Amino acid sequence: MQLLEGTLRTYPWGSRTLLAELRGLPAPSPTPEAELWFGAHPAAPSMLGGHPLDDIIAADPEAALGARVAGEYGNQLPFLVKLLAAGEPLSIQAHPSREQAQEGFSRENSQNIALDDSRRNYKDPNHKPELIVALTPFRALAGFRPTERTQQLFATLGGLDRYSSMLVTDRPEEGLRAVFTTLISLPTTLRMSVLNDVKAGAETTTNSGAEPWIVDVAQTFLQLTDRYPGDVGALAALMLNLVTLEPGEALYLDAGQPHAYLSGLGVEVMANSDNVLRGGLTSKHVDVPELARVLNFAALERPHAKSTKNGGAEHFELPIEDFRVSRHTLANGDTLQVDTDGPAIVLCTAGRAAIGDLELQPAQAAWIPAAEPSVAFTSTGDTPAELFLVSA
């Protein structure tokens, strides 16, 4: 068991304060700090004793991962842990299923599209289900809103009547598919006209007596159009659930579910993949046909992740096998016992926790290989420690 050094990613949408303050560093930071990666993804592996974690795993997969995980996941760590800090909205995006990723990865390889080519959609043959647990108030767009509520929203905003009629309540998935693909494919002149009409309606709505959720959506639309003028992603966003997570609440997003994180700090755990299909709110590559091909157009009535609590432990209920996630709140002297036949990462997000000579502080993590015997982390600070345990 050793300290796992996270790898910082400085994307333009990152925050200049959230990660810096969590790490106890001066804020604002010189550049936007978007993500701190803890894992073995080849694009940005964490360091363990001065060596990349993916190299350490490759040198002895069974010791690092255990026979079960090494055999099931081809000697690869099946998950990636991140601290994600959104200072500005991320792109509207979705991730493929494993089958879609395998086919897309093979197809783009056969087309000789380089892995670092900006047009590349599939960087690996893996799926990317993900869980985000809020550490601060966290706003996100997540999954398609039920048809009836989107019809109500369109009627209130105005400018979308011709598209609202396409939302067929007895065949909701067909209607959502028709409207979404139509909106994100609008030619430039028509797109700008629709955006202007909806913007006028949204400005009126924010000062009206509309239901609070509609006002919230209207205000968010105006913020997105100000940040990304003329971007069709603002129209696509009108069809997605707008969610505000309080600290400790979580979202789970499976293959094909559209989403965009808007603001806040959270712990994100995902399958070990970098496959992203984008649909707007970005200057990066957007592939509308491929996005439409992988999207799940079933409405997501409640995107919040379910969990069970037992004392200071909370276990998130996930429909996948790639990773397990639990959150532990430890008073001074309390312990977290880690005993697994596979690999594990323990991430500290509050307080302090020690094991032997190693003490974890916020934004620090420990790597526990499968060969390690059972270990225990003990809360040592004056304030409760918060630890996330991720294992396979």
Results as ranks from 00 to 15, higher is better:
residue 352 R to E: 15
residue 158 G to E: 07
residue 345 I to T: 11
residue 148 E to I: 10
residue 340 T to D: 15
residue 172 P to W: 01
residue 347 L to R: 01
residue 101 A to I: 10
residue 142 A to N: 07
residue 224 L to E: 00
residue 350 A to L: 01
residue 206 T to E: 03
residue 34 A to L: 04
residue 303 P to V: 00
residue 331 A to F: 10
residue 73 Y to T: 04
residue 203 E to L: 15
residue 120 R to A: 09
residue 346 V to L: 10
residue 331 A to T: 14
residue 137 P to R: 04
residue 25 L to M: 06
residue 76 Q to Y: 03
residue 308 T to A: 13
residue 316 F to A: 02
residue 345 I to W: 09
residue 214 I to T: 09
residue 326 S to G: 15
residue 311 G to W: 09
residue 52 P to S: 10
residue 335 T to C: 14
residue 68 R to Y: 12
residue 331 A to G: 15
residue 294 V to F: 01
residue 45 P to T: 07
residue 268 E to C: 06
residue 276 V to D: 11
residue 194 V to G: 05
residue 291 L to G: 00
residue 6 G to N: 03
residue 170 D to F: 11
residue 103 E to R: 15
residue 89 P to R: 01
residue 104 G to E: 00
residue 4 L to T: 04
residue 284 K to Y: 13
residue 3 L to Q: 07
residue 140 A to L: 08
residue 158 G to N: 05
residue 297 F to V: 06
residue 302 R to E: 12
residue 177 R to V: 06
residue 195 L to P: 01
residue 233 G to K: 00
residue 224 L to F: 02
residue 72 E to F: 04
residue 233 G to D: 04
residue 353 A to P: 11
residue 1 M to Y: 10
residue 311 G to I: 09
residue 194 V to S: 03
residue 181 T to S: 14
residue 351 G to I: 08
residue 332 N to T: 15
residue 87 G to F: 05
residue 175 G to S: 08
residue 151 Q to G: 08
residue 233 G to P: 09
residue 6 G to R: 01
